[in-house]
Each structure stands twice: as structure tokens, then as C-alpha cells.
């Protein structure tokens, strides 16, 4: 992988005393990020997505974030919060491409029914909403996935489905992934490499 140009390059990334984080993530590669609660994992993901002012530099395919318009950067480098928010009535209203056939394959892969897309969000369970949020994220065809505890509300079967779908997506599209997880087993399953934050927000390597 050393010869490949990194999809996502983080250089001295820091935010509010957290970091600095240096990492190069290759196309198709997944980096796991762990650390105690409150260490700043979420803030680092938000910094990569440029949702908060931060120090250091992020590059996508060697192009710095500053040359992208911010919305274009976030379409390419997509952040999935731990508690995704919804604004319209049904999941379908949130999709960029409401009738994409690719979406139907992913629905099945996540054990969701097409009819759910038109059901009021209030009638869906938190687990269903969490999987639909991943679907919504992939619908934008990002090149980098920033996933914050994407399986927190899921049972074992659905955890496996989400892990498989993300792996397929990254392999298919050569997308890079940063996956925040508190579960060591999950980090070993999904990630090619692991980084950890200590209680003071400093980055340590652990494998």
C-alpha cells in the first residue's frame, strides 16, 4: 500500500487540545479509532468533515480541503454522527436520489424493506433509523466515510450486516473509512489499522 497515494491524508489535525493526529488512509482502507468516553473521537471526526474550526490539514487525493467548497468537501468526506438527525417526515425525503436502484440493493443488505422508506420516521425503531442513516450517507456516494459508533443501537445480526456493507462499499469504490468504535472485537474485524486516543486526547498507536 506504500506505493498508493492515500485517499485521505491527515497532517497535524488538532481541535481544542485534542490530537495532533497524523494518518494516511489508502483507498479501500479502514482505520479504527478508539479511546475513553470524552477523549475527543467525535470532535476529531467533525474536524475531518470540517464541521468545526480546527488546526492542521486534511487532504483528499492529495488535494487540501481548502480548495474544495465546504459542501463539496463534506459530500466527499461524509460524517455519520452517533445520533443521526432527521428533518423531513420519511426516510425517502432525505435521499439525494430517492429512486436509485443501488439503494434497493443496500436496503436488502441492511435487512430493510423498501416500504420503510415511506414510513414516518417516528414509527421506525432506533436501530432501523440508524441503518437508514447509513443508507442516506452512502446515497451521496462519498469517497471517505467517517463513522461514529454506527452500530451502537443494533443487534449482532445487524452489526454484521453494517460491517459487511461498509466493507463492500469501501472495496467497490476504493473509499477510505475512519471507524470510531468502543468494541475491540469490531475494531479488529473492520479495520486494517487502529489508533487510540488517551484520556487527554493524545493519539497513541495500538494494535
Amino acid at each position: 500500500m506504500a506505493s498508493t497515494r492515500p485517499r485521505l491524508l491527515l497532517r497535524g489535525l488538532s481541535i481544542g487540545g485534542i490530537g495532533p493526529l497524523d494518518a494516511a488512509i489508502a483507498p479501500g482502507e479502514c482505520l479504527a479509532l478508539s479511546g475513553p468516553s470524552g477523549a475527543g473521537k467525535t470532535r476529531l471526526l467533525r474536524a475531518i468533515a470540517d464541521l468545526d474550526p480546527h488546526g492542521g490539514e486534511c487532504r483528499l487525493d492529495d488535494r487540501p480541503a481548502a480548495v474544495f467548497a465546504a459542501p463539496a468537501w463534506r459530500r466527499a468526506v461524509a460524517y455519520l454522527p452517533a445520533e443521526p438527525a432527521w428533518w423531513a417526515d420519511t426516510p425517502r425525503d432525505h435521499l439525494r436520489t430517492p429512486d436509485a436502484p443501488a439503494g434497493h440493493d443496500r436496503l436488502a443488505a441492511l435487512d430493510l424493506e423498501t416500504a420503510m422508506l415511506d414510513r414516518p420516521l417516528t414509527q421506525l425503531s432506533s436501530g432501523q433509523r440508524q441503518r437508514l442513516a447509513l443508507l442516506r450517507l452512502l446515497d451521496g456516494q462519498p469517497q471517505v466515510l467517517l463513522l461514529d459508533e454506527p452500530t451502537a443501537n443494533l443487534d449482532a445480526d445487524n452489526i454484521a450486516r453494517v460491517e459487511a456493507l461498509v466493507a463492500d462499499y469501501c472495496a467497490e469504490r476504493d473509499a477510505a473509512c475512519v471507524w470510531v468504535s468502543h468494541d475491540p472485537g469490531q475494531r479488529r474485524r473492520v479495520a486494517h489499522r487502529q489508533l487510540a486516543l488517551d484520556g487527554r486526547g493524545r493519539v497513541t498507536t495500538c494494535n
Binding site: A49, L51, P71, A72, R74, R75, A78, Y79, L80, P81, E83, P84, A85, W86, W87, R96, R136, L137, G140
Partner: peptide, 13 residues
């Protein structure tokens, strides 16, 4: 704020 940021995170202006 969560909704606004959710839309921003998905590439909205």
C-alpha cells in the same frame, strides 16, 4: 442544531 449539522454533514450549503 443537530438537524442543521446533519444537513451540512451531507453536503448541504
Amino acid at each position: 442544531a443537530a438537524v442543521i449539522e446533519a444537513r451540512l454533514a451531507l453536503g448541504a450549503t
